[in-house]
Structure formats: structure tokens, C-alpha cells
Computed example of a mutant assay.
Amino acid sequence: MAQQRILVSGRVQGVGYRDWVVRTAQRGGLTGWVRNLRDGRVEVLAAGEDTALGLFVEACREGPPMARVEHVESAAVPEDKPHKGFTKRFTA
């Protein structure tokens, strides 16, 4: 199982991006979390099979219809502890 930290910038807050991330991740069988950052970006930590994770990162480049994604950074990170489901977290 792989894990990725994804940072998404653009018009991604206040447009349903986090809810979309949760639904998309759950459909892909991923676990992890999503939260807004105070600087206007959205941070995602997602874990799952390599193929599903790759498809998820690509989907994050599009987002929901109201979003305007300008940039996506993703990097593999070591898995520290298993996640249960996929959740929204408070702003960091």
C-alpha cells in the first residue's frame, strides 16, 4: 500500500472540493483525510493501491465543477499508521 500527500491550489475552498475528495477517494477504495489550509490550498493524505492512488491524484487535477485547480503537488510519504475510511479534518 502506498501513501501520497497532495497539495491543491487554485479556487478549491468554498466550492465543495473537500466533499468531492471524500466521495472520489471512497469510490477508489482509498483511506486518509482532506483539510483546508489557511493559505487557501487543500491538503490531502491518501493511502491505497498504487493504481487507485495514481488515478485519484489525476482526478484531483480536475476537481468538482465549481473548482478551478491551478496546481497539484503530490509526493509519496511513508505510511505512519493505517487510516479508517476517508474523512474531512478541520482547517490547519
Rank of each mutant, 00 (worst) to 15 (best):
L7C: 12
L7T: 15
V8R: 02
G10W: 11
R11E: 09
V12F: 05
V12S: 09
V12L: 10
Q13C: 08
Q13W: 02
Q13M: 08
V15R: 00
V15M: 06
G16C: 08
G16F: 09
Y17A: 08
D19R: 14
R23S: 10
R23N: 11
T24N: 04
T24W: 01
T24L: 01
A25W: 05
Q26H: 01
R27D: 14
R27F: 13
G28C: 04
G29R: 01
L30K: 00
T31A: 12
T31S: 15
T31I: 01
G32W: 05
V34N: 09
R35F: 02
R35D: 00
N36A: 05
L37W: 02
D39M: 14
G40V: 12
G40E: 04
G40F: 07
R41Q: 15
R41G: 12
V42A: 12
E43C: 12
E43N: 12
E43P: 03
V44N: 05
V44K: 11
L45N: 10
L45W: 09
A46Y: 04
A47R: 11
G48D: 09
E49N: 06
D50T: 08
A52R: 02
A52K: 01
L53S: 04
G54P: 05
L55I: 01
L55Q: 07
V57D: 00
E58Y: 04
A59D: 13
C60N: 03
R61M: 11
E62F: 01
E62N: 00
G63Y: 04
G63F: 02
P64H: 08
M66S: 15
M66W: 13
M66R: 15
A67I: 07
A67H: 05
A67P: 00
R68A: 11
R68D: 07
V69F: 07
E70I: 02
V72T: 14
V72L: 10
V72G: 13
E73F: 03
E73G: 01
E73I: 00
S74L: 04
S74D: 14
A76N: 11
A76R: 15
A76S: 14
A76M: 06
P78D: 00
P78T: 06
E79D: 04
K81V: 05
K81D: 09
P82G: 13
H83Q: 14
K84Y: 07
K84L: 10
K84M: 07
K84C: 04
T87M: 10
T87C: 10
R89P: 01
R89D: 01
R89H: 07
F90D: 13
F90H: 12
F90S: 13
F90N: 09
F90L: 12
T91N: 10
T91G: 04
A92F: 12
